[in-house]
Nucleic acid binder design. Structure first.
Length: 250
DNA sequence: AATGAATTCAACCGCCAAGAG
DNA sequence: GCTCTTGGCGGTTGAATTCAT
């Protein structure tokens, strides 16, 4: 027999999340980490299904999320990546640390698509224009020697990589030099030690206060832990897969 | 100020692959 | 090898917000 169902959806709350629910979920994850989404709502005292909690965490509560509008550079990169990858939003989002697939998908559907339509340009045409204007960031199969990046003694070839990802890799290298493997693993597995004091509930206003988290940003380890989510989603094999995808579709 | 249209985006739905039993 | 759960993904919806009249 398999496992128990994720949720029966009876008596579960739906719709927008309240501040209190956000706090409960965030507190629980920061203190206990994520083992099983199905059990999280019950243990955190939430009347939500695991899927809903997962979505809320990934798209809204994750500490490493980047807020605000996407820059023009990011928008151009999205157009380029979309030309290569199609609607594989999670793959596209993996190139933008702190951005979610949902956010990029929404941005594409509501703004980029409309903007290109207004200009009577097909997305692929626009991507080609960007390729021509910015050959360095091109997603084409490189004819010359590609850019490379080294991590832990291994050298990866990179032809699509945002500047932020490069910075992230450099930070990782820098911090790796100063930490032994065991302590690093502990920080990756259990982020609660780093985060539990980073926010609290103001009982009077029921507002989430994240002021303290800003004060922790000076700590290199804190910074690194914040970026770990994005870092771990980076996969050198993605590059190969994407190149093959483009090669096949082109 | 009131109203309707357009836009945004958080959240849900349903499907799928992987893995547990 | 089959059934079922889980996590993850892309498509879609609809409430909230903004804009135009």
């Amino acid at each position: 027999m398999g496992r128990q169902p994720c949720c029966d959806k009876v008596g579960l709350k739906r719709g927008p999340w309240t501040t209190d629910e956000d706090c409960r979920l965030m507190n629980f994850i920061l203190e206990n980490g994520i083992q099983c989404w199905r059990t999280i709502p019950k243990l955190a005292g939430l009347l939500r299904c695991g899927k809903s909690c997962r979505l809320r965490w990934i798209n809204y509560l994750r500490p490493d999320l980047k807020r605000g509008m996407l820059s023009e550079t990011e928008e151009n990169q999205i157009i380029q990546l979309h030309a290569c990858l199609g609607n594989r939003w999670s793959k596209i989002a993996s190139h933008f640390p702190g951005r979610t697939d949902n956010e990029i998908k929404n941005h594409w559907n509501t703004r980029i698509k409309k903007r290109l339509k207004d200009q009577h340009i097909e997305p692929k045409e626009k991507a080609e224009l960007i390729f021509e204007m910015m050959p360095e960031s091109s997603s084409h199969i490189p004819e010359t020697k590609p850019k490379t990046n080294e991590m832990n003694g291994r050298r990866y070839e990179i032809d699509i990589l945002s500047d932020e990802t490069t910075i992230l890799l450099n930070n990782y290298e820098m911090i790796s030099e100063n930490l032994d493997e065991a302590s690093l693993t502990n920080h990756v597995v259990n982020t609660s030690a780093s985060y539990s004091p980073s926010f609290c509930v103001e009982e009077s206003s029921s507002k989430l206060s994240i002021e303290k988290s800003a004060s922790t940003l000076g700590d290199p380890m804190q910074q690194w832990v914040q970026s770990t989510h994005s870092m771990l989603s980076w996969d050198p094999f993605n590059q190969l897969e994407e190149q093959l995808f483009y090669f096949r579709s082109g």
